[in-house]
Every structure is written in C-alpha cells, then in structure tokens.
Simulated scan of single mutants.
Amino acid sequence: MTEGISMENQWQLQEAKSKFSHIVDRARQHGPQFVTRHGHKAAVVLSFEDYQRMCAPENSLSEFLKASPFSDSDVETFDRSKETPRDVDL
C-alpha cells in the first residue's frame, strides 16, 4: 500500500483503466483517488471542485499587493499624458 493512502482509494493502473467512470464517481463522492503503476504513485483523480479549490488563489490581487514589502515605500506616481497617440502606418 502507498504511504498515507487508503486501499479503497488506491487503484492499479490496469484496474483504473477498466473502472475509470467508477473512479471519477468515487473522486466526486469520497475525495481523491490514487492510481499506481508498478507499485509506485503515478496519478491522482480529483473532482473538478477539488481541483478548483486547489488552484484558487489564497488572496485577491489587491490583498497580495497590500502585503508587499514595498507597500509602504514612497513610489513616484506618473501622470498620464493627455496627448493623442501618433499616427502609425501599418
């Protein structure tokens, strides 16, 4: 058995191929399903919801910028030019 993984959530590759639909259902209902190949960890089947949670940023961009070590530094701001852009021949 692979360390830290329950036998009911672990599948050999050959079995996973033939029971893929069942494994997807189990991932949605019971959490990640682990696939082994030649006795070694090879892949994990996750529900889409688990995948989204895993990939979601912990903070918003504004929170990230506020937490920056440079947030209290004096940064010069620049005024945007009011001039119209020059014409470019394409």
Rank of each mutant, 00 (worst) to 15 (best):
83 E>G: 08
63 E>S: 14
38 H>I: 01
41 K>P: 04
35 V>R: 09
65 L>S: 12
67 A>D: 14
60 S>Q: 15
10 Q>T: 06
83 E>P: 02
66 K>A: 10
4 G>D: 09
52 Q>A: 03
39 G>Q: 07
48 F>Y: 03
63 E>L: 06
60 S>T: 15
52 Q>G: 00
28 R>E: 07
43 A>K: 08
62 S>K: 14
89 D>P: 02
42 A>H: 09
71 S>I: 11
45 V>S: 08
88 V>C: 03
69 P>F: 01
44 V>D: 01
83 E>M: 10
66 K>R: 13
30 H>A: 05
57 P>F: 07
51 Y>K: 04
60 S>D: 13
54 M>E: 04
79 D>P: 08
81 S>Y: 06
56 A>T: 09
82 K>I: 07
16 A>D: 09
77 T>M: 14
15 E>R: 15
55 C>T: 09
68 S>F: 13
35 V>D: 02
87 D>N: 02
85 P>H: 05
63 E>P: 06
87 D>I: 13
67 A>E: 12
4 G>P: 03
52 Q>S: 01
11 W>Q: 02
57 P>R: 13
22 H>S: 11
73 S>Q: 05
36 T>F: 01
88 V>S: 06
35 V>K: 11
7 M>E: 10
18 S>G: 06
37 R>N: 02
87 D>V: 05
61 L>G: 03
84 T>N: 05
18 S>E: 14
22 H>W: 04
48 F>N: 04
88 V>K: 03
24 V>E: 10
69 P>T: 11
8 E>W: 03
73 S>M: 01
22 H>V: 02
41 K>L: 13
6 S>F: 04
1 M>L: 11
69 P>E: 10
80 R>P: 07
66 K>Q: 13
43 A>E: 00
46 L>I: 05
17 K>E: 14
24 V>M: 11
65 L>I: 14
36 T>D: 02
64 F>T: 14
12 Q>F: 09
27 A>G: 00
58 E>H: 12
59 N>A: 10
29 Q>L: 10
37 R>Q: 05
64 F>D: 11
2 T>F: 12
36 T>W: 05
89 D>Y: 09
72 D>R: 07
30 H>R: 12
41 K>C: 02
53 R>P: 03
21 S>E: 12
8 E>K: 15
57 P>S: 12
64 F>P: 02
11 W>M: 11
